[in-house]
């Protein structure tokens, strides 16, 4: 949180306290069309992706990153081995040779419904917006627990800089606020990417599976994985053949640390009680074993 937002919050708080809630909400949230109760999502149809890498180029341009060379010659080299996203490449497209031929898969932050990175952040530098975007703020302390906690290894840390940030796809949050499609979706020439509310793109995904028997495997990656995500993938082949993990399960990642977090209040209250009780119980025994001084004191007090 920078000083301006801080002052804004204080300001709205004071305004709210003095004039009731009449003045407050509309203006301060005017810029954000976030009053939705549904997550935004992108359907990625890997059977349509042609590996042109224009999404990578558009992403770099929008986010002010080094723009990649996407000429045919460059692509040939790039696709030689699978890549991971980096601090300057929020999205990468990989090529996989499978039983059904060559498949291209664009990969970026999944924007989980219940993100491990957000749950692991001690200063809420990572935030899950109401609209589904997982974005990063500069009050981050750089502990990198988000990187440990992300099942997809998406948050990337700038090791080589004194002021280092966490970098990853933010589902074009700024563009979303202006009502514009994410850059990658907008530029895609084959409609391999489709944006909308998560419910709508999920419906569309299921429709495609039903309407084209045999073309897709009957599974949308991201529908249930780690509790669901905003990036939803369709595939012609089982997902482990195109670089996805099969062992993620459907439990949201925050659940794994929730056991400890739920125990914290109990540890914090019951441990001292237990210790004091043990101490008191043992003390009484000690006092009884040497009763003389005690009795004298209480005796003189009473009589």
């Amino acid at each position: 949180m920078d000083r301006r937002t801080f002052l804004k919050i204080i300001g709205t708080g004071v305004a709210g306290a003095t004039t009731g809630s009449l003045l407050m909400p509309v203006q301060s949230l005017a810029g954000e069309s976030t009053k939705t109760k549904e997550f935004y999502g992108i359907l990625v149809d890997t059977t349509r992706c042609i590996g042109c890498r224009r999404c990578e180029q558009a992403c770099a341009e929008v986010n002010g990153l080094p723009v990649p060379d996407i000429s045919e010659a460059a692509n040939k080299q790039v696709f030689a081995s699978p890549r991971r996203t980096t601090v300057t490449e929020y999205t990468v497209t990989n090529r996989y040779e499978t039983e059904k031929g060559t498949i291209f898969v664009p990969q970026r932050c999944m924007h989980c419904n219940q993100p491990g990175c957000v749950a692991s952040c001690p200063v809420k530098a990572l935030e899950k917006k109401r609209a589904g975007h997982v974005i990063w703020h500069s009050n981050c302390i750089g502990c990198r627990l988000c990187m440990v906690s992300c099942p997809f290894d998406m948050p990337k840390f700038e090791y080589g800089r004194a002021v280092s940030n966490i970098q990853k796809c933010n589902l074009c949050w700024d563009r979303y606020k202006q009502g514009v499609l994410p850059a990658c979706v907008e530029v895609c020439p084959t409609q391999a990417l489709m944006a909308g509310t998560r419910r709508l793109v999920l419906e569309e995904g299921n429709r495609r599976i039903a309407a084209n028997p045999g073309q897709y495997v009957d599974h949308i990656f991201g529908e249930y994985e780690v509790g669901g995500a905003s990036h939803l993938y369709l595939s012609a082949v089982p997902f482990d053949q195109i670089g996805f993990r099969k062992d993620l399960g459907t439990i949201p990642y925050p659940e794994y640390s929730a056991g400890y977090l739920r125990a914290v209040p109990f540890i914090a209250t019951l441990t001292p009680l237990f210790l004091l009780a043990v101490n008191a119980a043992l003390k009484k025994g000690i006092e009884k074993s040497e009763p003389k001084t005690e009795e004298k004191h209480s005796g003189t007090g009473k009589h």
Partner: peptide, 22 residues
């Protein structure tokens, strides 16, 4: 920690991430 100058944020409440083990 990569952004060590921000560590006081944890203690002064510039985003209390009480849901975090860290």
């Amino acid at each position: 920690f990569g952004r060590w100058w921000n560590i006081p944020n944890v203690f002064i409440g510039n985003g209390f991430g009480a849901n975090s083990v860290m």
